[in-house]
């Protein structure tokens, strides 16, 4: 027979169950509110508005494909770029720096053309803005023991929070001399094509939006575009399967993946 003392009441099975149910319901409703279908459409934005773009790069093929797909990136719109790279990935670091040099070169050529062709109205010189390269520890190294994996995954998640909070003051390269740290906090847009790190970055952004820390959700920050790798012809990658219902846009590059997970959008091949 259960005694009806207050302590016994709150430790009773049915009470714990009720609290758990209410908790789960609240969390579910909150998560549903974060999902892409409930997200407000983006407000109109003018060129020159400080806009932080976060690009998650992965090893080898992922990086080459991502930067190739971004060939049309306009640095006057995306005024600060953060490249997220796994520690030890020298290839991606070099490719990101090379990509930034190509943006600068394109900008310089454009301005030179305007100088030569004096008939054309000189555009306001906004330049190519700024960028930083953020290194995250790997969630799991190859051959790492399973025991220590949760710890290193947590360390990776923690690094992702810091990267999302603000661009790094120390590694930011300012190309037009207009860099002011206070212009930027959370990324406005996250773009990735699905290396493992991308799952952790997007998980971190979801946690920040869940608790609406510093207005992560209410200010409409961290919209996400996932581009499934061109190498995926018939089935999604693991990252793709994990993120298909979470990201704001889910793009596929093969027609037969159109509508996959009820989300896949085929708009053609981005890889080049």
């Amino acid at each position: 027979m259960t005694p009806h003392t207050p302590l016994a009441l709150i430790t009773s099975y049915s009470f714990v169950l009720a609290v758990a149910l209410v908790g789960i319901l609240a969390i579910t409703l909150r998560l549903l509110a974060l999902f892409p279908s409930r997200r407000l459409p983006p407000p109109k934005r003018r060129i020159g508005t400080p806009t932080r773009l976060l690009i998650v790069l992965g090893s080898g093929g992922h990086t080459a494909e991502m930067l190739g797909a971004l060939h049309g990136l306009d640095p006057r719109k995306y005024t600060h770029r953060t490249y997220v790279i796994s520690s030890g990935d020298v290839f991606s670091t070099e490719k990101a720096a090379e990509f930034e040099r190509s943006l600068e070169l394109k900008d310089a050529t454009k301005r030179l053309d305007q100088l030569i062709d004096m008939n054309e109205q000189m555009q306001e010189r906004t330049g190519t803005g700024s960028y930083d390269i953020a290194i995250v520890p790997r969630a799991r190294r190859i051959h790492q023991s399973l025991l220590s994996t949760p710890l290193s995954a947590l360390r990776c998640l923690w690094a992702c929070f810091n990267i999302l909070m603000a661009p790094s003051n120390t590694t930011t390269v300012s190309l037009a001399g207009r860099w002011r740290a206070e212009l930027y906090d959370y990324p406005d847009l996250i773009v990735t094509n699905g290396p493992a790190t991308a799952v952790i970055v997007i998980l971190a952004s979801l946690i920040l939006r869940f608790f609406d820390i510093k207005g992560a959700n209410s200010r409409g920050k961290m919209r996400t575009i996932y581009v499934e790798s061109w190498a995926r012809v018939k089935r999604l990658s693991l990252s793709g399967r994990l993120l298909v219902r979470i990201v704001d846009r889910f793009l596929v590059q093969w027609e037969r993946l159109q509508g996959v997970g009820e989300r896949g959008e085929y708009l053609g091949v981005f890889a080049r």
């Binding site: 459409p41 983006p42 407000p43 109109k44 934005r45 060129i47 806009t51 773009l53 797909a69 971004l70 049309g72 990136l73 306009d74 719109k77 995306y78 406005d188 847009l189 773009v191 919209r223 575009i225 581009v227 704001d248 846009r249 793009l251 708009l267 053609g268 091949v269 981005f270 890889a271 080049r272």
Partner: peptide
Amino acid sequence: WPPVNSGRHGRAADLAGVMDEEMGF
């Protein structure tokens, strides 16, 4: 390469266009 008419409206696909949609540019 890339396939010339693979994208919307028979043009080459363009990720920058999708990004601009998401950002309201």
